[in-house]
Simulated assay, not measured.
Amino acid sequence: MSLDAFIMGFAFILIHLLANELIPSGRIQRLKWFSFSGGLAVSYVFVYVLPTLHKEQMIVKKYNDFFTMESELYFVGLLGVLLFYGIQKVVRKAQLKGNQSKARALFWLQILFFGIYNMLVAYTVISHNVLGIQAVFYGLAVGLHFVAVAHDLWREYSDIYNSIGRYVLALGIIAGWILGVKVHLSPLTESIIFAFISGAMILNVLKYELPPDDEAHFPTFAIGVVAYTSITMSLKFFFQW
């Protein structure tokens, strides 16, 4: 494991353990924080996740005769959207019906799936050997994404999240570390994993990080989008990421 990946993984663990301490308590500051974070996350999806998914699709099509179209990995990404959206919908439905015991039980299922999600994200970071400045900028976007997801889970059932949930999410990061170091999967399998978590990440970014109209601070959101996109695209141009 490279030092870059180790530092990034350790930061992800701290984020899940201390996420709510990182968010400003004042309403205006909190809205600006989430707007800026959302801008970075949306930019990350468009300048990294979608282009990388396209590149993975082209590689898979070139070296695997079974993949004859140009959309197989996008279908896998759609499955990621469907699965995570379905789980969240079931939890919300139980909450709206006032069945708190069922909702709390289903919330554990949601925590488990986000633990698996964290594991796959961490595995992808390690297996793709993201290093140097690239690790800093991609790690920043993913880290802020983790903060937003953790905060939303905390708002649903803070007692469950604080007592056990955050440790489950942190253990997902550690499990992904171990898998990334010890397990070497085929390029096809790694592409499928990337596509699945890409779909889940796109859903979670739009759901958790894109602020609603009444809570958005658009200038801060725009600054996040423009700054992250400009810097990342410049680094892509100069360093051929």
Rank of each mutant, 00 (worst) to 15 (best):
D214P: 09
A94L: 14
N204G: 09
K102Y: 03
P219Y: 12
K62P: 14
H145M: 07
S127E: 09
K62F: 09
S37I: 07
A227S: 15
F237I: 15
L120M: 01
S163E: 04
V183D: 01
Q29V: 09
S101W: 00
N118L: 10
A195C: 00
F10G: 13
Y138H: 10
P51T: 06
V81Q: 05
E72K: 03
Y85W: 06
F107W: 04
I13Y: 07
W177Q: 08
K55W: 14
L185C: 15
R27C: 12
T124Y: 13
V225M: 10
F114C: 07
I28E: 12
V121C: 05
H151C: 13
I174K: 04
K55Q: 11
T229D: 08
I7M: 03
E21Y: 15
D159M: 10
P187R: 00
F196L: 06
I192Q: 06
L185F: 10
T52R: 04
Q100V: 12
L179Y: 11
H151I: 10
F46L: 07
Q100G: 11
V147Y: 07
K236R: 09
L203Y: 14
K236D: 15
A19D: 04
I160E: 11
M201D: 03
Q29T: 14
N64S: 12
I13V: 08
I231P: 04
F113E: 02
A5N: 12
N129F: 15
V76T: 03
Q29G: 13
F75H: 01
I59K: 05
I15W: 09
W33D: 03
M58S: 11
F84T: 01
D152T: 03
Q29F: 09
S35A: 14
V183T: 07
D213F: 15
D152Q: 13
L18F: 12
V183I: 07
L79W: 06
S186P: 01
W241T: 01
V49A: 00
P212F: 15
T220I: 04
F46T: 01
L18A: 09
H16L: 15
F10C: 13
K97I: 05
F237C: 13
P211K: 15
